[in-house]
Simulated assay, not measured.
Amino acid sequence: MRRAEKVTLQLQAVSILRRLKATRTYDELAELTGLSTGDLNRYVNGHVLPGVDRARYVVEECGPDTLAAEIESRITRDDEGYVDNTDVVYDQSLLDLVAAVAAEVNDFGTPDAVLTAATDGITLASAVARHYDVPAVYAKKSRETAVSEFFEARQRLTPGIEITYTLPKSALDPGENVLVVDDFVRSGETQRLLLDLAERANVAVTGVFTLIAVGEGGIDRVRDAVDGPVVSFTSLSE
């Protein structure tokens, strides 16, 4: 591991510990992590960085549950079951940490680009793309006037209702490896459209990562269509 990668991992671990400490005493944090209160105090207050092995332990063992719990605490649902994740997708620092933890604990490989759907998926996709240092590509429901060549994917939901997403042909190069990212999966329709666009662009989808899955039906439909890991960071009941 290169020095820059080590420091990045160590700083990610410190960020997770600070989020945990915000709602816990050092004794509670020590019980949760198995680390001593003295070490935790030094890490949280920035006096020293945890070693690489300890940092990886914090990120891989504590990070997913910690961040999933914070995401779930910020989600609201109305009486009809509609989900509001605004407090999550607007917090770029939280999404940056989610992207780093998700990449650490899942075998997505290193993509050449990250593909998402505008608009709510953009902040998460940007965080994931920054982590891998690759472009973030956005499919849109509206066609750019100045773009003459594009891919188009359509999905009929009910008679008279159809979803269309478009992607400029110049956005992806044939043969690239692409990670599909979105903030939210319920029916799986948007993600299936992104997969359709990827197929039309002749790129390989190495996996799908979503922040929140509601129910099992939508995420299962996505899994059926992808030869690679399909991961939801957190799940909600239907």
Results as ranks from 00 to 15, higher is better:
57 Y>P: 15
70 E>R: 08
4 A>R: 13
233 F>W: 12
236 L>Y: 06
48 V>M: 06
29 L>N: 03
37 T>F: 02
150 F>S: 14
176 E>L: 11
215 G>K: 00
238 E>M: 01
163 I>K: 14
185 V>D: 11
165 Y>F: 13
153 A>C: 09
51 G>R: 10
118 A>F: 03
212 I>P: 15
197 L>S: 06
52 V>T: 15
122 I>R: 04
78 D>A: 11
11 L>V: 14
123 T>L: 09
74 R>I: 07
134 V>G: 00
97 L>H: 11
157 L>Y: 06
223 R>N: 10
121 G>D: 06
77 R>S: 08
81 G>H: 04
211 L>D: 06
147 V>S: 04
165 Y>H: 15
113 A>S: 07
216 E>Y: 02
166 T>Y: 02
228 G>V: 12
75 I>K: 03
10 Q>Y: 07
55 A>T: 10
151 F>H: 15
64 P>V: 01
217 G>Y: 04
210 T>C: 14
204 A>N: 13
22 A>G: 03
152 E>W: 05
38 G>M: 05
146 A>H: 15
160 G>R: 08
172 L>A: 03
50 P>T: 08
101 V>Y: 03
175 G>L: 09
133 D>P: 06
127 A>N: 06
38 G>F: 01
168 P>G: 11
179 L>Y: 00
4 A>H: 11
8 T>F: 10
223 R>E: 12
156 R>K: 14
67 L>H: 00
119 T>H: 10
1 M>Q: 12
43 Y>H: 09
180 V>N: 08
89 V>C: 15
229 P>M: 09
153 A>V: 09
65 D>L: 07
126 S>T: 13
87 D>A: 12
147 V>L: 07
135 P>V: 07
101 V>G: 02
1 M>D: 07
99 A>K: 13
238 E>Q: 02
237 S>I: 08
169 K>L: 10
25 T>W: 00
70 E>M: 04
47 H>W: 09
137 V>E: 09
39 D>C: 11
30 A>I: 01
115 L>S: 02
177 N>S: 15
116 T>M: 02
83 V>I: 09
178 V>R: 11
32 L>T: 00
190 T>A: 12
77 R>D: 07
51 G>E: 07
183 D>P: 09
95 L>H: 13
117 A>W: 05
205 V>Y: 06
143 R>T: 07
